[in-house]
Design a protein around this nucleic acid. Structure first.
Length: 519
RNA sequence: GGCCCUAUCGUCUAGCGGUUAGGACACCGGCCUUUCACGCCGGCAACACGGGUUCGAUUCCCGUUGGGGUCACCA
């Protein structure tokens, strides 16, 4: 049997990290078995802004390299893979269910139903609808309608026996039919509900394996009832544990950002990204720009491979050792049987460390290409870029080494791209290392003079120059090194001092020293 | 509350009857070093509890407790 899996997001306007994990597992499973991965849009009641609300989702999946074999195109133009376009199929299914007696017209009023519910609760019994307003014949229906009642269509669920489900992750799970309600499948206004639509779609698209979040496990009985009543084959099921909040077992939700920001690690990763976004003058609303949303990572300059690698480990593992996987390796090794049953909490710090590993592997040339747009967006480089920028960027990226953990980190070195007389200083550091350090200014000015004759102006020679200077002055390296760094970069931290000077070149280095002496 | 799922270091996890319970992230020391980052070395740290089954349970079974999900004319 051909393997066909699906991811069925509703157009919410953003791609959530938990959703990606679900999509990823579906994608992996399909790829592993040479099957198809289908993207279907659950927009049964979304309405107007579907296209714009869908764009970030399609874009996010594409960015992450989760490609779909069937579904909307990249622009999200509605086609057959939108529930809103398939209403006729759902109506047909309802008619069939009605005809076979698996569903009935119900004329109960909300208050009447509510009363029954409350009575059951009072008596501490499980609520079971009395079916008082059930119309199984046209005569009944006519009578209720004469009373001015509105109708919905309900499932006529079995009231005895049980459903035995084989789940690829949970194993055997059983449900008593008696605990199931006569769920509504068609509203009074004639539109259909999710579970019905879902089952019809899964059948029409020939989905072989339903791989979805655990929250749907309890919904499965009604879906199985519907599909069996319709004569459809039962797909295979795999209910994934959900992705939980950092440091807790609650389901991750984009609505509880305030709470996550109290988590130190989450706050730190968030802050890092926010700083970069601000440097690029990005307008970011906290609700859509934070580590729960995929877009955050793209904006900040993470690598899609790193995110995918982190995510595949969230609920799945190969063994006790392997942590790094190429896509091919993931596809080759993935199996539902090795998916964990318990929820896994999202750990942004660990994601960061995976990102760090991937970044370290990246050749400098690629880092340069990755980093350039960030300078442009921050207004530090023109577009198209000046042809001189390539070599400079290569020098910076090489000198910065592992310090550039995301592409946006290039902005830590923005001072290379600002005019020498526009340099801003970390004032606290400037105070400590220059204003209040004895002799600092004298030493800086002495070293400035020494720089005038350095030839060639390279890191090696500069290092030797400094050592000679230190020896001549009879001082410790500490007395000048920190002052020098602040004088030429404005900052107390950064990569190798001699690399900095060499990249700046003699003229700019001298200008900056001059500037610092006057500051 | 009913039903369902679930339970190994703070976090992600390995383990599928006998292990000094392993790895990774984080954390804490130390080394390297002009700062920061990287790297290296070392350290702290877990089988929720109670019954069974068994020669022997982290592992199998049953309870308890904890956590979560679900019970809509939402998806």
């Amino acid at each position: 049997m051909a393997v066909r899996t699906r991811f069925a997001p509703s157009p919410t306007g953003y791609l959530h990290i938990g959703g990606v994990r679900t999509a990823l597992f579906n994608w992996l499973f399909a790829r592993k078995h040479g099957g198809q991965f289908i993207l279907r849009i659950d927009d049964t009641d979304a309405g107007r802004n579907v296209e714009s609300a869908l764009a970030p989702i399609l874009h996010g999946l594409t960015w992450l390299g989760i490609d779909w074999d069937e579904g909307p195109d990249a622009t999200g133009t509605p086609n057959g893979y939108f529930q809103s376009q398939r209403l006729e199929q759902y109506q047909k299914a309802v008619r069939k269910l009605l005809a076979s007696g698996h569903a009935y017209r119900d004329y109960a009023k909300t208050e009447e139903l509510q009363a029954e519910r409350e009575a059951a609760e009072k008596a501490k019994e499980t609520f079971v609808y009395s079916r008082t307003w059930m119309a199984e014949t046209d005569a009944d229906a006519a009578r209720f309608e004469a009373e001015g009642r509105a109708k919905v269509v309900r499932l006529k669920m079995p009231r005895e026996g049980k459903l035995v489900l084989q789940d690829h992750i949970r194993g055997q799970v059983e449900f008593e039919w008696a605990n199931e309600q006569d769920h509504v499948i068609q509203r009074a206004d004639g539109t259909c509900l999710y579970h019905l639509a879902n089952v019809v779609d899964d059948f029409d698209f020939q989905i072989s394996h339903v791989i979805r979040a655990e929250e749907h496990l309890s919904n499965t009985p009604r879906q199985v009832f519907i599909l069996e009543a319709l004569g459809y084959p039962r797909p295979e099921y795999a209910h994934l544990p959900f992705v939980a909040e950092p440091g807790s077992k609650n389901k991750l939700s984009k609505r509880k950002l305030d709470k996550y920001l109290k988590n130190k690690d989450f706050a730190q990763v968030n802050e890092h990204g926010r700083k970069i976004a601000e440097a690029m003058h990005l307008e970011v609303a906290a609700e859509t720009f934070n580590p729960v949303i995929v877009d955050f990572y793209e904006q900040v300059g993470y690598l899609p491979d790193a995110i995918i690698n982190y995510l595949v480990l969230l609920g799945w593992s190969l063994d006790d050792k392997t942590e790094t996987f190429t896509r091919q390796e993931m596809i080759e090794h993935f199996s539902l049987e090795r998916v964990n049953k318990a929820p896994a909490s999202f750990d942004p710090k660990k994601l960061m460390s995976v990102q760090d590993r991937y970044m370290q592997q990246l050749p400098p040339k690629q880092k340069v290409a990755m980093v350039l747009p960030y300078l442009q967006r921050a207004g530090l480089a023109t577009d198209p870029p000046p042809c001189t920028i390539g070599p400079v960027l290569m020098q910076i990226v090489t000198a910065a080494g592992d310090r550039i953990k995301t592409a946006g980190d290039i902005l830590d070195y923005a001072d290379f791209f600002t005019a020498d007389d526009q340099l801003t200083y970390d004032e606290a550091a400037f105070d400590k290392r220059i204003r209040q350090a004895p002799e600092a200014k004298t030493l800086l000015s002495g070293f400035r003079d020494a720089l005038k004759n350095v030839e060639p102006f390279t890191a090696d020679v500069l290092e030797k120059t400094l050592h000679d200077f230190i020896a001549k002055e009879g001082i410790a390296a500490n007395q000048i090194v920190h002052a020098l760094r602040i004088a030429v970069t404005g900052k107390a931290v950064g990569f190798g001092l001699f690399d900095i000077l060499a990249i700046l070149g003699r003229e700019r280095a001298l200008a900056r020293l001059e500037g610092a002496l006057l500051h």
